[in-house]
Design a protein around this nucleic acid. Structure first.
Length: 639
RNA sequence: GCCAAAGUAGCUCAACGGUAGAGCACUGGUUUUGUAAACCAGCGGUUGUGGGUUCGAUUCCCACCUUUGGCCCCA
């Protein structure tokens, strides 16, 4: 007899060899109907898997996240079969699940286009309706290799797979090498909850020197309602896209005369400047000095710093008076020269030099993306020079600064990565080891969770990166803390220590918002353009009911301007409803309706962005409230 | 950079071998308006750029530029 322990702790008995499906039936016929896979002792298996002895079993349904993943994986196979039936010459490569869906990499001479999606979907519906069972076949390594003979991709997959037993899954005549598990039959998928989303190129094994494959993306959900909800979420996310909002709100633009170079408009500059003002105040508090270094510097400097050898392909160059210059891609060499301008004592340490440095990095055209991936950007950079025994406390100080800055913008969700020694690098292995250990120690001291990103450090040192997600759930790096023992040595930086000898300082490179351009893009998406009052390009707009109260509107406007509010008046001949709609479209924080009633009492009727109600307040009262919200960096407008 | 798609008025989109059209915005007029868009009229385009095919190209073909979705890379 098998003793089966269920997730809630109950034990049920079943004859040895009972399948997971059988267990589900024993629990209840309803569960058996919706079961799509199982988990035996923590391992996901097909419903047809037999159990015996003492085991823990969990039944997976479409309601579980695991269930959805299995559905998506099975959908990948169904899509693969559909594609192969349309293009028999298609060679399948690899088809995993991803967040919200799945993809399949396919090698096919002919290009698959969005016009083909309907055809693929129709074929998939046909396969689903045929309710073909998924059958698992297990083979030894040699037999498996024999079974896929002729397919370079599948042979490669087998060579990369671990273990001696490899499995194949068949649905009817279609067969694919696959770890599984799968739904019991294609009919378990709701054909109304599946959709082909896009097709794009992808290198085999992500290697640019390898063949370009076609990657077809699909999504699958438990039912039609969830699919619709997902598609709705995507549409909503697109409305928050900073490129869309940037145009709509007149914040910035791009032009073909400078691809990858953002042009900031007056309203965009308001956000930019507010961010910087706040940034400066926090840096003053954390005892940073600020410097500014040139954008164009002699090429020799970049050879000395190692950028020439390690970063040249991302740099811009220019020649004037027969002298070769580089446009800076990083601020550190300039910062080093500032350090070298004076002699330093250990008593000054740590020296924290911040710089809002404008850098240029050549990025190949395919990777440009609005404000978040550009060729020219301003880093909120800083270089900290300190003694080795100050490293940990300095790193901790930066982490605290990161947390303070992010929370002011309402960013609570970010993840941290620790990147280690890359292939292209300067400095000895011992130095890398010490530096990496120091970063790790600081993170652990702060009790922060982080993941290791092997081989992804900067060429001069390991780094801690802070990532947040945009509205389309793409992850973007913001802050970075990089430890560098090499650059100070190369530039022969010294300080006089207590014992009156000259020693080499340690250098910490760090950026918190990362790129101000990227940060602005993420801010726009984060707030959906509805900026908190302190960041809003237009904090308030006075809306006179008609020309009759135009004079009163001007009085209010002047008072607000005098109080330092960013404010305009809408004196167009529109009706008040139209003015309100327009102001909402422009994402103005407070809409101040001014009619005869208000004029008589010295008040305005305040309508808040996003709200249908309004409140009547005295002008001075409004100013006091707004000033309070701005000073507190309040995220909400309500009062 | 690679694979694919797209580029039409300031913006969002139609038309798809035969004189390029709408809404919003803008300008003028009517309306003097009370909380998410009053009405009328007008202005606005060498259809991304350059070649080619054709009697004729926005439409078909080629190249380039830019953008979009991915891949690789990265702040």
């Amino acid at each position: 007899m098998a003793q089966v322990r269920l997730p809630d702790g109950t034990i049920i008995n079943a004859p040895d060899g009972t399948t997971v499906q059988g267990i589900a039936e024993q629990i209840g016929s309803g569960l058996a109907r919706v079961a799509i896979a199982g988990e035996v002792d923590g391992v996901r298996v097909d419903l047809s898997t037999a159990v015996s002895g003492e085991v823990a079993v969990k039944i997976i349904t479409a309601k579980n996240e695991e269930g959805l993943e299995i559905i998506r994986h099975s959908c990948g196979h169904i899509m693969a079969e559909a594609i192969c039936s349309i293009w028999p010459e298609a060679k399948l490569v690899y088809g995993p699940t991803v967040r919200d869906g799945f993809y399949y990499d396919i090698d096919l001479g002919e290009a698959i286009t969005p016009e083909d999606f309907a055809k693929i979907e129709a074929k998939m519906v046909e396969i689903i309706k045929a309710d073909k069972p998924f059958a698992r076949i297990e083979l030894g390594r040699q037999e498996a290799l024999g079974r896929v003979s002729g397919s370079v991709y599948k042979t490669d997959n087998i060579e990369r797979a671990e273990g001696d037993v490899l499995s194949f899954y068949c649905q009817g005549d279609f067969e694919d090498l696959c770890r599984g598990p799968h739904v019991p039959s294609t009919g378990k998928i709701d054909h109304k909850a599946v959709k082909i989303m896009s097709v794009a190129g992808a290198y085999w094994h992500g290697d640019a020197s390898k063949q370009m494959l076609q990657r077809v993306y699909g999504t699958a959900w438990a039912n039609k309602k969830e699919l619709k909800a997902y598609l709705f979420r995507i549409e909503e996310a697109k409305k928050r896209d900073h490129r869309v909002l940037g145009k709509q709100m007149d914040l910035f633009s791009f032009h073909k005369e400078g691809p990858g170079f953002a042009f900031l408009h007056p309203k965009g500059m308001v956000i930019w400047n507010e961010v910087i003002d706040y940034w400066r105040s926090v840096h003053t508090k954390y005892d940073y000095g600020e410097i500014k270094t040139p954008i164009i510097l002699d090429q020799g400097l970049w050879k000395k710093s190692g950028h020439w050898d390690n970063y040249k392909e991302n740099m811009y160059f220019t020649t004037v008076d027969d002298v070769d210059y580089a446009i800076k891609p990083m601020n550190c060499p300039g910062g080093l020269l500032v350090y070298k301008a004076n002699k330093h004592s250990y008593r000054e340490f740590p020296i924290r030099m911040a710089e809002l440095g404008l850098v240029h990095r050549y990025e190949s055209s395919g990777q440009l993306h609005g404000l978040v991936r550009v060729r020219q950007f301003t880093q909120d950079d800083a270089h900290i020079f300190c003694k080795p025994d100050q490293i940990e406390s300095e790193i901790i100080g930066v982490i605290e600064l990161v947390q303070e800055l992010y929370s002011a913008f309402g960013f609570k969700d970010y993840h941290i990565e620790l990147s280690t020694m890359p292939e292209k690098r300067i400095g000895s292995d011992e130095i890398w080891e010490t530096a990496t250990a120091a970063l790790r120690a600081a993170l652990e001291r702060k009790g922060l969770e982080f993941q290791i990103n092997e081989g992804d450090g900067a060429f001069y040192g390991p780094k801690i990166d802070f990532h947040i997600e945009d509205c389309l759930q793409r992850s973007w790096q913001l802050g970075t803390i990089q430890l560098d023992f090499s650059m100070p040595e190369r530039f022969e930086l010294v300080y006089t220590d207590k014992d009156n000898t000259e020693k080499t300082p340690v250098m910490i490179h760090r950026a918190i918002l990362g790129s101000l351009e990227r940060f602005m893009g993420i801010l726009i998406e984060h707030f959906g353009g509805n900026m908190p009052l302190w960041l809003a390009p237009e904090q308030m707009r006075v809306l006179p009911i008609s020309d009759k109260t135009a004079d009163y509107a001007d009085v209010i406007y002047n008072k607000l301007r005098d109080a330092g509010m960013r404010c305009t008046v809408d004196c167009s001949p529109e009706k008040i409803g139209a003015k309100i709609a327009k102001a909402h479209g422009d994402k103005v924080g407070y809409m101040l309706v001014a009619g005869p009633q208000e004029a008589e009492n010295g008040t305005v009727s305040v309508r808040m962005r996003g709200s249908k109600e309004s409140k009547t307040v005295k002008i001075d009262e409004l100013i006091a409230i707004a000033k309070g919200k701005i000073a507190d960096k309040a995220l909400e407008l309500e009062f």
